[in-house]
Write a protein that binds this DNA or RNA. Structure first.
Length: 461
RNA sequence: GCCGGGGUGCCCGAGCGGACCAAGGGGCUAGCCUUGAGAGCUAGUAGGGAAAACCCUGCGCGGGUUCAAAUCCCGCCCCCGGCGCCA
């Protein structure tokens, strides 16, 4: 024992209730959990008493003379019947208890802003040189929460990333993709593909140079694993199931990386374990309805580099800052202006105790849009995955803390580049930091992605 | 996918229906001993419940047979070897 939620249920249910209320969930869940846990412990003791009696009789049987044996066996049989009924009762209570307890979200960190939805997210930092269309200045400033930002007013409105991709550059085709695969799929071509790869390599380069171990994980996981690493909402929104197998496509490398130490005890000295996973991410986007239907901002499939850390409980907040620091370094290198927001209680997923989003400025929309999420899940995932640390010196065991953060999500970052690095003539400058990853390839663009030529069709007219 | 062999605690490894605890070794941790190291000795080293003495559960996972399962039966997962298929 030592899972923080179970500890609170037994020692301080009020604190848990408070956290649940802030998430806009029903606080009576906690009362019910406390009751069920008490009932479970009581019934468990009853079951164990019967088992003990049965064990006692059993051990007497071989020592009993043949004539007496049958009597003992009957006695044991009778106890079994009694046991069966009690065990059934216990199992029912246990199932209810476990189901309820595992539906409880993580305990909120103290500094999570309280509020029902994303409008209560608190911007805590802005960085970069913003380009803002002249009519958007007021809108822009509103989104800064009073934080100071350096910005340049431009008198032309940049073209939105979707039109840039398909019309101006002619390097994407979502129409054909939706015909053959469905909406939210895409074909991308040439320079945009190079850009995708270079972003991934860039993020991998930065993160691995800090000692994160580079990993290509399984792209599918068994049901049991998916269910223990994810909450129900995410499951419904994101997860694709493979027909005929108990396999699910990953929606992020976070999940197979968390599963790398499934049901393991990790020696204290081996912590922290820092991983950098590369994988595609498959997402159903079932909850997104009609949001972001154009372009490649919100799609069913993209490439991602993910940071993941297993840490000792006492160190996890330090590493949460480290992950955010890495992400900021990546975006500062790209020179994409952004803000960091502290996600409000009502907008926070069940797994996380606290989450930062890094949101890039999108000048065509005059909005900040999420590029990266950086979460501390404390022991919520570790409890479900049964991942513990073991401190032999002090003969101590406990659940590790897990943290995850995007390092780069390819398609989203591309949309930010298409808007922020766009020139008035429709060309897109490639962030300087990416050039060295493009240099080895003859066909790859190096400095600019150019608008498509007024092609043959136009000339014919 | 098929045939054969296997999966026992932190590790090695015995046990193949009941005999007080899963024998025995190794490792690790603490204590004792020592000027120090080593050796030696003692204890601890799966999960859960209980204030505690204790008790229950645990031999890849899930079922079953039995008064009693590490041991017998069924299904699944994984590892090793062989055959087949394959980028």
């Amino acid at each position: 024992m030592s899972w923080s939620i179970l500890e609170l249920i037994r020692s301080n249910p009020e604190a848990l209730e408070d956290s649940i209320k802030k998430r806009n969930l029903d606080p009576t869940l906690v009362k019910r959990a406390v009751e069920l846990d008490l009932q479970w412990r009581k019934t468990l003791q009853e079951v164990e008493k019967i088992r003990h009696k049965h064990n006692q009789i059993n051990s007497e049987i071989p020592k009993t003379a043949k004539e007496e044996r049958e009597k003992k066996i009957q006695e044991a049989r009778a106890l079994l019947k009694e046991l069966e009924a009690k065990e059934k009762e216990l199992k029912e209570i246990e199932e209810q208890r476990d189901q309820l307890i595992s539906s409880l979200p993580n305990i909120l960190a103290k500094d999570v802003p309280v509020g029902p939805d994303d409008s209560y997210n608190v911007p805590i930092k802005v960085w970069g040189k913003f380009r803002v269309y002249k009519d958007d200045i007021e809108d822009f400033k509103k989104q800064l929460n009073g934080l100071q930002a350096e910005y340049e007013t431009i008198d032309w409105r940049p073209v939105g990333h979707a039109d840039m991709l398909e019309t101006v550059l002619g390097l994407g085709n979502t129409e054909k993709a939706s015909q053959v695969a469905g909406s939210r799929f895409f074909y991308i071509f040439d320079d945009i593909v190079w850009l995708d790869f270079s972003l991934l390599l860039y993020a991998i380069d930065i993160v691995t140079s800090k000692g994160y171990k580079l990993v290509v994980p399984p792209y599918m996981l068994r049901g049991e694993i998916i269910y223990s690493v994810i909450d129900m909402d995410t499951f419904k929104d994101a997860i694709y199931k493979i027909e005929n197998d108990d396999l699910y496509l990953i929606s992020t490398a976070e999940h197979p990386l968390a599963a790398l130490h499934y049901k393991e005890d990790i020696e204290k000295d081996e912590l922290p374990i820092k991983l950098a996973g590369f994988s595609p991410a498959f997402r159903r986007e079932a909850g997104a309805a009609n949001k972001d239907m154009k372009g490649i901002f919100r799609v069913h499939q993209f490439h991602k580099v993910e940071q993941f850390i297993y840490s000792l409980p006492e160190d996890s907040w330090k590493y949460h800052q480290e992950l955010l620091g890495n992400v900021e370094e990546i975006f500062q290198g790209l020179e994409i202006p952004y803000r960091v927001v502290n996600i409000a209680s009502g907008d926070l997923g069940a797994c996380a105790a606290k989450k930062y989003d890094l949101e890039a400025w999108m000048p065509a929309q005059a909005k900040f849009r999420e590029m990266i999420s950086c979460s501390n899940c404390t022991d919520w995932q570790a409890y479900r995955m049964k991942i513990r640390f073991i401190d032999r010196k002090n003969n101590k065991k406990g659940y590790v803390h897990t943290l995850n953060s995007t390092a780069i999500a390819s398609t989203r970052t591309i949309t930010a580049i298409l808007e922020n690095f766009q020139k008035e003539d429709g060309s897109v400058e490639i962030p300087k930091v990416l050039r060295k990853y493009l240099e080895p390839f003859k066909a790859a663009p190096k400095d600019y992605i150019l608008p498509r030529k007024k092609d043959t069709q136009m000339n014919r007219n």
